[in-house]
Design a protein around this nucleic acid. Structure first.
Lengths: 245, 245
DNA sequence: CCAAAAGTGTTCAACTTACACCCATGT
DNA sequence: ACATGGGTGTAAGTTGAACACTTTTGG
């Protein structure tokens, strides 16, 4: 394994997180100051990403990015899109940033994009040299590079995927309440559900298993905890079929 | 625009076609003969693809592949996956093929994959130097390179996509019958539908417009023709919502 | 005792499924 | 006349949508 970075191939990670209230995404601040005046020439945000090593699995490169940020392994990771417009890094701002950070702004870079799912509350973010944090997806505007489009793609892919596979549990703690699960679906799709109808719906999902354990220390009727059983899911899943358009 | 091919980036096209009976895919024969004995050292099939030019849009590269094969422009094209395992072209067979066809077998190639949709009956295939043709998807086994996995990915993506957008019409002639439409969905999902229930379902789709025109020259009751109206579709489409797992 | 979220059922409308026969055409 | 696929309706069961009150806890 060589350690040379590939000049033309990168990965970008759209790291989604749920905090029981909103859908969030990890962004990195991108600030460039004029060395003389101290004025901020660039001040915006981007997704997290990296060039790959020339003979590295792209998924491993994405895991590197994730591990650098969170210290975690085994994070849910899904390739969803490859951004490749030859002009995608050609805006004056992006060109300036690339030259000031030691990249060659002439090089074409295609970026294979992954989304990840995390529970914000259980994920410490290691802020290294640059400012990194969770930001509500609904507030995000004008990211650097073409990252706004990548984020839009990612959200759409997440919506499609979560309809067909039980991946939402990746954004919840192991034990969760039905209200938390409902809120998760609500923020992912940006809709509201009726509590009773939602509960009737999930009651049919046999892989959602109620525990004899309730919330403690909450100043209202404590909610029952549930767990997701992948084992039951794999045994009972049935292929979807429903062409709805 | 330079005309140098990028050594590390290619596109592969999974070209699906419907012939009113089966779902087909265009494959290219890959034959390598021993120059002395004439024995066939390699004899299998692959998808169609090509390296990109260094500053070419990947979608344009895919369009080149499609235009070379069919002479057509404006073919439905959808990026669905990027194949990237550093070892994806490392099997002895693939290495042999690469060296015998003037490629450097050491180079890592990542391939951005697109699927296209066509009506077989309206698509002439230009067979140039190599043998190219339509093959039933259900019979395909053991393609060269990692193309079997790419095809499986493509079929899955097609199934997901066709559930959420009316892209099936790309595989039908402009005027089609309801039985043809039904057969299309049946072969894409590999299931059978009840004729009456299918018709009730599509009757709700306002963008399926019946014509005052029927089949001619068929030895049975002639079927009414329908067209797909994109205009009506765009006006009436509603966002899907149904997390079914 | 108050605030806060948990939990629970019924009714009506819409949709899904299963199922069988006559029709228009070419040969 | 016959073979072929086109075209149609109904009843039963299931699912989806709308809607309000009681319960349990902490403060």
């Amino acid at each position: 394994m060589t350690t040379r970075l590939h000049p033309n191939i990168s990965v970008d990670c759209v790291i989604f997180g749920f905090d029981f209230e909103k859908l969030n995404v990890i962004l990195v601040e991108r600030v460039l100051k004029d060395p003389v005046t101290g004025e901020e020439i660039i001040s915006d945000f981007t997704l997290t990403g990296n060039h790959i090593y020339v003979d590295e699995h792209l998924e491993d490169a994405a895991k590197r990015v994730l591990n650098d940020l969170t210290g975690l392994d085994h994070i849910y990771l899904e390739q969803f899109y490859t951004s490749e417009d030859p002009a995608r890094l050609k805006s004056p701002k992006d060109q300036l940033w690339l030259s000031k950070t030691g990249k060659n702004p002439e090089e074409r870079v295609i970026s294979v994009c992954y989304f990840s799912l995390l529970n914000c509350k259980e994920t410490p973010i290691r802020k290294k040299d640059r400012k990194v944090g969770w930001y509500p997806v609904s507030n995000v505007t004008n990211l650097g590079f073409d990252h706004s489009q990548i984020l839009a793609h990612a959200l759409h892919s997440l919506q499609i995927k979560i309809q067909n596979e039980p991946i939402g549990y990746e954004m919840l703690p192991q034990k969760f309440t039905l209200s938390q699960l409902q809120k998760l679906y609500e923020v992912v799709f940006n809709v509201e559900f009726d509590k009773r109808n939602f509960r009737k719906k999930v009651a049919k999902m046999k892989y959602l298993i109620p525990l004899d354990e309730k919330q403690k220390g909450v100043s209202h009727k404590p909610a029952r905890y549930y767990i997701f059983s992948r084992e039951v899911y794999e045994k009972t899943k049935t292929d979807m079929l429903n062409f709805s358009v």
